[in-house]
Nucleic acid binder design. Structure first.
Lengths: 248, 248
DNA sequence: AACGCGAATTGACCCAAATCAAGTGGCAAC
DNA sequence: GTTGCCACTTGATTTGGGTCAATTCGCGTT
């Protein structure tokens, strides 16, 4: 809303290396200063848990660098990833005391946190923050629903292809992008994390990646470095109507 | 925020039999009048499609009565339900030209629509509408993520038990509720719709319902009328940590 | 009463992915 | 250079749920 057409990514918050998506820079000044006064940084090592589901969470935050995951678990240990947090993504929610999910660092991460109470108060005084958060939340909701289709109806091979095309889209845009449909990127997740995301076992993930490699849909260098010779082919394997604008 | 503690359901909009959750009644007057001026009603018969994914959608709306569903499909026809709309639920989104999902009427429904453009303009002038919509969207996001856990990691039996406990929670609260954990309600969905919701086939749904009946977890009268003799038992079958506050 | 029809059930069989189990490869520590 | 560890791969086997097909159950129509 407000200034969205001018600078769609929104942003702002002084000296952060990335620009947070929650706040609009054109409305800066007072708000920006206020935001500065309630923020602080926290870093976590790969594998560490940022917060456990049910714990008190007195901040909201933005991922500055690294990758984190949101997961849910059943008592017997079955776990399902419900969100992947990449730099600039927002975590936590105004108006909720405690965390709903486990948040874990997949790589080393740096988070920019804002104390929750002051942030909430600020949000009440500053309409466009709520409007911007609404847009972001609606996008996340779309991504979650796209994921529901994947979890409920896609085959293992389609699931893997979908995940690869999402990572390619988010990651490879800033990396080397040689010919027309050729893309190269690193998988930021272990096979187990991929399995938790896709509702599969890690063995099935491994087998399907091998199968895609054997069939020439992808090329592998080591275990993590992937080259997709033909993105269109991958998208067909993913089973989407090629538009595919998900996981924003 | 604003008045949430006073009347958590929010609401308002003149003569509607239900009160919409998007607007706060304590702030009425001008807004209420304005809201009246941009609203109109539409009704649909059971089985009709309200809107197709990708179609232009120039309104947002609230379900007044009846049940509608949000679904997504792959080209080959596989379909996944991504949302269940019960009375008072909100459909459509400010800031989006076209529909993202298919919306269909499961029963006869009445919807209260607001023309989108004026609604958006009003939202910009009236901060608490955006704030309220944000809360609702966050709740939907939680529900969607809870559903991801179900789709990705639960067995067919657990899926059915989960769906039954959700319907029981949303429906039976207003119906007869005899002894402690005893509940009675009607299933608002066909076996096929349940299958689309749960990521199963209709045969599996049927078999698992029969199994739950055989095992005394539920009692059936006809095909749609269900009695749960012991809600706790059902919740255990659903595999949740009994709290289970999902699908709001 | 007979018919038609869509919704639901039930059975027989099959297959994709889970499970169980045995490697392989890379890399850091001593 | 050997050891240990962890991430990953690959194989053999099992199984939960899908597929295909045959009924059955209601229920409105004529």
């Amino acid at each position: 809303m407000a200034h969205d057409d001018v600078h769609p990514v929104s942003l702002a918050c002084g000296d952060c290396p990335i620009r947070h998506r929650a706040v609009c820079a054109r409305c800066e000044t007072d708000e920006l200063e206020e935001l500065e006064s309630i923020k602080y940084y926290r870093s976590f090592e790969a594998g560490q848990t940022v917060i456990w589901s049910g714990d008190k969470m007195d901040f909201v935050a933005s991922v500055v660098s690294g990758i984190a995951t949101l997961t849910q678990t059943l008592e017997d240990g079955r776990t399902q990833m419900v969100g992947l947090l990449l730099p600039s993504d927002f975590v936590g929610r105004p108006g909720r005391e405690s965390a709903t999910y486990n948040v874990s660092a997949t790589t080393d991460i740096l988070m920019c946190c804002f104390r929750r109470k002051p942030f909430e108060e600020m949000m009440e005084r500053t309409p466009h923050i709520a409007q911007r958060l609404l847009q972001m939340t609606l996008d996340e909701l779309d991504a979650a629903r796209e994921w529901m289709l994947l979890l409920g109806r896609k085959t293992a091979r389609e699931k893997i292809a979908s995940l690869l095309s999402i990572v390619a889209r988010r990651d490879a845009s800033i990396k080397l992008r040689t010919a027309a449909g050729r893309m190269t990127f690193d998988l930021p997740l272990t096979r187990e994390a991929m399995a938790d995301y896709l509702g599969l076992t890690l063995e099935t993930v491994s087998r399907q990646i091998s199968a895609l490699k054997r069939d020439g849909v992808i090329e592998l260098e080591g275990k993590r470095h992937v080259t997709v010779p033909d993105m269109d082919r991958l998208l067909i394997e993913a089973g989407d109507d090629s538009d595919g604008g998900f996981l924003v």
